[in-house]
Structure formats: C-alpha cells, structure tokens
Nucleic acid binder design. Structure first.
Lengths: 149, 149
DNA sequence: GTAGATGCAAAATGTTTGCTCTAAT
DNA sequence: ATTAGAGCAAACATTTTGCATCTAC
C-alpha cells in the first residue's frame, strides 16, 4: 500500500518526505475527488505545520508521476482523482459531488468511426450530469417543509 | 438573428442595452468557446468604455436565460459555448482548443442501462482529448528544426 | 420616474512563485 | 555534504461584489 508509493517515488527520483506520505495516505482513505483546500484541512489535523503551498506542489508532483489525475469542477477548483484507470464521472449539479463509474458501454465508444478529420485522439471521458441520491432526498424534504409551513 | 435575441431578452424581462447587444453579436460571430477576458478584448474594440465586470455579469445573465452554456477549461478559465444543443467536445491538450462535435453514436449512449443506483440523470457529454491538427503540424515543425540544428 | 444595468475599485478565490531554511539521501 | 523539498509571504489570475452613476423603459 504505502510500499507501492515508496516504490513509485524512488522510480521517479523523489524524496520520501513525511508530508508526501501523509498527503498520499489521505488520498487513499478518501475517494471523493477532493480539491487542494479540502486535502489541506484534513491533513493539517495530523500534520499541523504543513502549508497549503506544499499541498499544491505535492499534488502537482503526484499528477506528473501519474499517481493522480486532475480535473476542473464546475465550482471552479481543480480536483484530484486517485482513480487513474479509464473511467467516467457522474456529476451532481447541486452539490458538485463526483462519482466514478466504469462500464464497457462507456469505454467502448466507436470513436474511430467519427468524422474527426485531423484530430488525433488520446482518450475520452463521459460526464453524466444529474442529481445525486443525497440531493434528491434533500430537495424532497425542502418541498415537504415548504408545503407544511 | 438579433431579433431573436431581443425576443429572448423581453421574455426574460431583461433590458436591451448596447452592451448586451455587442456582447451577443461577438458571441455569434466567433464560435471558438472564448473566456470572459477574450470577449472583453474583442468587444472593447467596438465599445471601448465597456468594463470587464459587465462582461462577467452579462455572460452570467446569458447563461441563466439559456443563451450560453459554460464549462471549465483545463487552463482554469470558464469558457462559453453558444451551442446549447446536445453536443460533445474535442479538446486539444496542447492549445486547449475546443471543437464541437455532434454525432448519433455519442448522443445515443445506453445511459439508462447503466448501474447508476439513485443518481438521476439529466444529460451527458463526451469529452475526447487529443491533439488538434494545428498542434500536430507545429510539433512536426519543431521536431524537424531540432534534427536539422 | 423607477427599476435595472453599467463601470469602477476593492475584495475574494484559487493557485503559483521566489526565497530562505530544513531535512532526506 | 549535497540537493530536493517545506514553509512562508507575496504575487498572480480569475471572478465576484458593493456602490454610485447612468440609462432603458
């Protein structure tokens, strides 16, 4: 687990620092596509002297060595996905939650048969927008309280 | 053309101001998913007293009445798409160019048959990442000049 | 005349950078 | 001992906000 991380760092000629370890562990434990600020808040509890700049630099480093993939959320922050396999996203338009989904029907799109002219394809990702279960419950509750008031 | 715009504004109870007209015309004339800054630079040529804040507020307004759809580019700005029909994107990883594509094979994904549990789907969009024709040409030129030097 | 829009400047975000000091190797 | 990395503060880029002024209706 953490051994794999140390392995990857060594291969990339990166020093193994306590900051990098604590950030990596945090990423392993939570899979809800956090942004830098969120990671900072959480990591600070175990490592109070860590700085936000270190979080940004470390996330950047992790992206470069292929440990994370970044994406832009609708809310305007860069978020980080520990899942670097080919997968797709369910994005909640209310709470901005992102749920990973892997499915052959999305993986095997007939991209080659599209009229893309001179565009050279590397990969594709499907983003499915909608409302997550939690937000559906919340909006039902709101509607209920609105009609009873 | 501009009549349709006036129509939509009236329906939404929006005043028709010269600023809104010039921004809308700019959006009609260029379809390459500009960000606020780009629109500002262009619009300022015809309307030098316009402010960037007005651009932001106007784009926001246009999104709210369904005239534009916003999306976040990898480069970190919000970009605006005048194409509000169901369509998909080719994104160049080098120059961040975004090319629209519409195709049945992408429109008719079997979303309903996916195991989404309690996620309520609204729509989906496919993002195809790769290298655009222009950037392919540029990198070939660079490689050529590197080998001859 | 009045509500709503503009333009300015200031503030708020999110992120990056330069530099000194510290720690991993 | 050397070099990479951490932490701080300052800079930067993008976007939002408050408010006084102006303008479409």
């Amino acid at each position: 687990m953490i051994d794999r991380f140390i392995q990857i760092c060594k291969e990339a000629n990166l020093n193994i620092t306590p900051q990098r370890i604590v950030i990596y562990k945090e990423l392993l434990n939570h899979h809800e596509h956090p942004d830098a600020e969120t990671i900072y808040r959480r990591v600070k509890e175990q490592f109070p002297t860590i700085s936000l700049a270190t979080i940004y630099k470390t996330l950047d480093t992790f992206v470069k060595i292929g440990l994370l993939s970044p994406f832009r959320s609708g809310a305007g922050t860069t978020r980080y996905d520990t899942n670097i396999e080919h997968h797709h996203h369910l994005v909640c338009i209310h709470c901005d939650k992102v749920i990973d989904i892997s499915h052959d029907a999305l993986a095997n799109l007939p991209i080659e048969s599209l009229p893309l002219e001179d565009f050279q394809v590397i990969n594709h990702q499907v983003e499915i927008k909608g409302v997550c279960g939690d937000c559906q419950k919340k909006s039902k509750q709101t509607m209920k309280s609105q009609t009873t008031n």
